[in-house]
Design a protein around this nucleic acid. Structure first.
Lengths: 233, 233
DNA sequence: CGAGCGCTTGACCGGCGTCAACACCCGTGG
DNA sequence: CCACGGGTGTTGACGCCGGTCAAGCGCTCG
């Protein structure tokens, strides 16, 4: 059993007013008065690939906004197997549930090098009671998280192995370059799709053989989508 | 294709102050002033088994609190198959997402005769901006919904057919009589567990044969749990 | 009492899991 | 610079679990 490491590098204190992705995040609509009521600093942090941001059940001091990279949320089942319940991308909030329970419901692990800002619970709790603007944004983030969870179940955990891999390929297209799609380690993909890593590998090879995908690198992480129709069934 | 029916019976207007399950619901903490600010009536409605409460994508005027019965939330996949993404029980809120998008993300169908109260969006929107008490309750309902969704994925859609059926049996225990568990139509159970109805039937028969369950009725809807350990693996 | 629906059970088959060998990439150290 | 070793991805052989198709049974309700 690998011990859980809580590694992070402090990168300074955020000035949210000049945040590059502010229009996507919780604080998008805050005004100068709102900012002046924050009495605890927002820290910028970074994590390396594989670092555990927090563990399932751990008590929480804050939540995170993902600025760069991808993060997986993992539940461990009673019989000890790991299930990836969602993958978060820039703009998503990590650990929303901490607002209500002050604990994290799942484990969060950086899939690549990521940068996040950590918002103390006290800041959110104070502002959400006083700022209808933040209240609205919070509701939007909850709604998005719930929709993502339901989509994950309905799209990715249904149908044949081929269909699952194909839909994951469509779901993981790069936002700025939709011709390309970003895959993960094969056992991570298996844990997302409820398949064994060998089956994932076989289905990817099958899609390449059939001309739906083309490998861009030798590590099997980036593929070009040649035939979108074929992936949509 | 069976046409979608939107059937409901109006059962009068609610007085939330005297609601029997008020401590479980959104309005638990409201005070007299909050109630006085509601300018649209809360209606009591009932639906029969199989009735569609709303359709996926339909525009929403309100959300519902489930008072009695069980409701399934259904997503239809691109290839036309239906997936039950969650089952709601008394105290749960139905259609929370409407608060943000004014549309329902999934289809809601009564599994038995249910009674609900319908809360107009305008009431929630007005109060949530002005009442920190409702704000807190709302967040709790969002958190619960998201946790339920993740649990559903991690517990019920993982492992062998036997394990899935066993975990559903544990999940669907009657709150007041945990010795008993409530099952559903076999194809509904299949759609929850991503199994075919024949497989569900076989695994239930297997659990009965092995002495873990005992049928209480002849329709296969209610079983007694004889050996809890056997269901937990 | 009969029709129809839902549950159960059986036989068979295919897709996916299991186990294993191998290829390839990459970092390390000689 | 190359040899080595570990980690990860790929591919093959084989067996089993669960899907498919079909028949039969037992409710329930007309």
């Amino acid at each position: 059993m690998i011990p859980i490491r809580i590694d992070s590098a402090w990168k300074g204190t955020s000035d949210c007013r000049s945040c590059g992705i502010r229009d996507m995040v919780l604080f998008a609509d805050l005004n100068e008065q709102d900012f002046s009521e924050m009495h605890t600093p927002i820290d910028d942090l970074s994590f390396g690939a594989g670092d555990v941001m927090y563990a399932e059940g751990q008590s929480a001091q804050g939540l995170f906004t993902l600025r760069k990279g991808t993060v997986k949320l993992i539940r461990t089942t009673v019989d000890g197997r790991e299930r990836i319940v969602r993958v978060l991308r820039p703009g998503d909030v990590i650990g929303l549930e901490a607002l209500v329970t002050s604990r994290y419901d799942s484990e969060a692990v950086a899939m690549v090098d990521v940068s996040v800002c950590r918002i103390p619970l006290s800041v959110i709790n104070h502002l959400s009671a006083n700022s209808p603007r933040l209240h609205l944004r919070l509701m939007q983030k909850w709604q998005q998280a719930l929709k993502d969870a339901d989509d994950w179940l309905a799209e990715l955990n249904f149908g044949s192995a081929r269909q699952r891999v194909a839909r994951l390929a469509l779901k993981m297209r790069e936002p700025e370059e939709p011709r390309f799609t970003a895959f993960f380690a094969r056992d991570d993909m298996g844990s997302m799709l409820d398949l064994k890593l060998e089956t994932v590998s076989r289905e990817i090879s099958g899609l390449v053989r059939d001309g739906a995908l083309k490998a861009c690198d030798k590590q099997g992480r980036r593929y070009e989508i040649l035939n979108e129709k074929m992936l949509m069934n």
